[in-house]
Amino acid sequence: MSVGHVSRAFEAAGIPTVIVMSNVFRGRVLAMKPARVLFTRHIMGRPLGAPFDVERQAHVLRESLRLLESATEPQTALLLPDAYRTAPR
């Protein structure tokens, strides 16, 4: 849960953060009380999406930035509904 620790240090230093991660680690990171976290229904090691799935990667990042900007209180978490997929051909 390294990034959870980094997030806490950044927030304490006054830098707002959003964590973008697979929902499979949900329990571990929520126990660390993160400021803002966007979860994806993606397989471990592919939090933004599959290789070359530019559309999904952009969507995840855009939603993460939206969460970063809109959250008004700590422990704001959002799970995107989209299931993992390979890049559309």
Partner: peptide, 15 residues
Amino acid sequence: KAKTEGWEAAVLVPV
């Protein structure tokens, strides 16, 4: 370090 480089917000990604 991030502050000295002018970061005003951060996107953090674990695996």
